[in-house]
């Protein structure tokens, strides 16, 4: 068979123009389903970013007794610094603590009530692996359940941190399942739409076979069309996602930052991972379109 691009492309585009409704349906199905998949992927990625940044802010605060000796203080600081899980240790003296408290509560009535300096000195410990926060905290407790010498209290947001970690784990697996299901639904929907559009043209296939067209000759325009529908649909979904994530999500993120009082968030918009998601959607769209046509044709090509 001679390959004649003009015939194949011509047939593809004439076919699309004359079966515009089916063509439109196929493209919009691809665009909408992949948009939903992509939307969800971006949200999940975004939430992961938020959780990671919240996790990275998990700290252990070790409050010291006022009567702690300098030797013990230095000993503790060196000891803590040597732990593998520790990223950074900051010593906050009583004076620094008071200063910070005054700054945080500027203009408030409470400042007038303070006499002297009731605030303790403390170590603020940042961790390399936030999941180990409880183990670290327990090192300041002796066998009898009392704090070790010089330590008044250890605070790390016990309940809050535990909940955060278990929620993250569960949410991660649920999100994974939902993405898989959405992907399957998208593939099935696109496949059915393309199969319908081929079914609508089964007469054409029958006639082609009757006048002696080879199977490939019948197939190629449909494959082009399927690929084009998947490709164009996924491009549309990516354009929609781009605008959505650039305008809506960034605003949403600002709202999260404002309401949850977290210091920083992974700022989204377009970064590498999002670009991979976009590229993945386009490849998926084209591939699903092509394969759907190919599978759907099998039934009709045997005349």
């Amino acid at each position: 068979m001679i390959f004649r691009p003009r015939y194949f492309f011509g047939e593809t585009f004439i076919g699309m123009r004359r079966n515009f409704l089916m063509f439109f349906t196929a493209i919009s199905t691809v665009a909408i389903t992949l948009f939903i998949v992509g939307f969800f992927l971006i949200i999940v990625y975004d939430v992961q970013g938020v959780l990671t940044s919240i996790k990275s802010q998990v700290e252990v605060a070790v409050y010291l007794k006022d009567n702690i000796t300098d030797e013990l203080k230095v000993y503790l600081e060196n000891e803590i610094k040597n732990w593998d899980e520790v990223d950074e240790v900051t010593f906050v003296s009583k004076d620094q603590a008071l200063e910070k408290f005054k700054k945080d509560n500027e203009g408030s009535e409470i400042l007038k009530e303070i006499q002297g300096n009731p605030l303790p000195a403390s170590f603020e410990i940042k961790l390399t692996s936030p999941e180990k926060v409880e183990q670290i905290a327990l090192r300041f407790v002796d066998k009898d359940g009392n704090y070790i010498e010089g330590v008044d209290e250890v605070i790390y947001g016990q309940n809050y941190v535990q909940k955060l970690f278990s929620i993250t784990a569960i949410a991660g697996s649920i999100a994974f399942l939902i993405i898989i299901m959405l992907l399957l639904a998208a593939i099935v929907l696109v496949f059915n739409t393309i199969r319908l559009s081929i079914h609508a043209r089964r007469k054409e296939i029958e006639v082609m076979k009757l006048v002696g067209a080879t199977n490939w000759f019948v197939r190629i325009p449909f494959l082009f069309e399927g690929f084009f529908e998947g490709f164009a649909g996924s491009l549309i979904s990516v354009v929609l996602l781009y605008f959505m994530s650039n305008y809506l999500l960034i605003r949403g993120e600002k709202a999260i930052v404002d309401t949850m009082h977290v210091k920083e968030l992974a700022i989204l918009g377009v970064n590498n991972v999002i670009l991979y998601i976009y590229a993945g959607l386009v490849v998926l769209g084209g591939l699903v379109g092509l394969l759907s046509s190919s599978f759907a044709l099998k039934r009709y090509i045997r005349v």
Binding site: R18, K203, E206, V207, V211, G212, A213, F217
Partner: peptide, 30 residues
């Protein structure tokens, strides 16, 4: 099949192609 022309009771014409295109189609696909 290219050596056997077939005619049917229900014509089997393609409704979205013109007369010229319907006939030309048989030559194009071969």
């Amino acid at each position: 099949r290219r050596n056997i022309g077939s005619v049917f009771q229900d014509f089997k014409l393609l409704p979205n192609k013109t007369v010229f295109e319907n006939v030309a189609f048989a030559l194009e696909v071969i």
